[in-house]
């Protein structure tokens, strides 16, 4: 039955998933971090520019591409999941996770390279922000990977199918939204840390 008919018949309108509240708050807190970063940058632009040039822009860009590709696969999983093709949705989520795993490898390499060359949280204010912003983002990424891992299991196998499918669709939508937020936040972090001040 088309949506208009359902609404006309008095069926309750489906509410937007409440995870939007979490996403809005989380993005606002990152927004605040970005404002504080830019405010601190104003005080010592030369130091921030010089420090920014020590980061590998190519690796930051590679990670942005990895997360965008992963997000695209997860969005696709959401589309097929809505149509009821849960087997395909599970496969796409698994592919999304496999692609996203590369983000962890690249970030791990970047951290290793920086720490082994003596660049730590206390090196200067830029690197305090670098480790804080990318670290908090990395925690979000890890939580997202756990959520994708749960989604890759598909609907609950023993619960009544109607209930299991409805619940899976809801989780798939919420999980996808969260994963897009992780991707979006990286684009901002990449722009601020790697690009502003780069040569």
């Amino acid at each position: 039955m088309p949506a208009a008919e359902l609404a006309a018949a008095g069926a309750p309108r489906e509410r937007a998933p409440a995870i939007w509240i979490f996403i809005a708050l989380d993005c606002s807190s990152f927004g605040l971090f970005f404002v504080v970063f830019m405010a601190q940058r104003l005080g010592q632009p030369a130091l921030f520019d010089h420090s920014s040039q020590q980061l590998y822009t190519a690796l930051g860009f590679l990670n942005a591409c990895i997360l965008i590709t992963s997000s695209w696969l997860v969005a696709w999983a959401n589309v097929v999941g809505r149509q009821g093709d849960f087997a395909q949705a599970k496969k796409l989520i698994a592919w999304g996770m496999a692609v996203a795993a590369c983000f962890g490898l690249v970030k791990g390499y970047e951290y290793y390279e920086k720490l082994s060359s003596g660049v730590t949280v206390s090196t200067n204010e830029f690197f305090t922000f670098y480790y804080a912003l990318t670290g908090i983002h990395f925690v979000h990424y890890l939580v997202g990977m756990v959520i994708l891992g749960v989604l890759a299991q598909g609907p609950h196998p023993y619960a009544p199918p109607d209930q299991a499918h409805a619940s899976y669709r809801k989780w798939l939508e919420g999980g996808s939204l969260y994963w897009h937020m992780v991707d979006l936040l990286w684009i901002f972090i990449f722009s601020l840390l790697y690009l502003v001040g780069a040569r």
Binding site: I21, F22, L25, D26, Y131
Partner: peptide, 22 residues
């Protein structure tokens, strides 16, 4: 919204991890 707000606040505590480093 209150549930999501409280979860957001306690998850945002993760940033305290930076405190012993600076």
């Amino acid at each position: 919204w209150a549930a999501w707000f409280s979860m957001f606040v306690v998850v945002s505590f993760a940033v305290l991890t930076m405190m012993p480093l600076v």
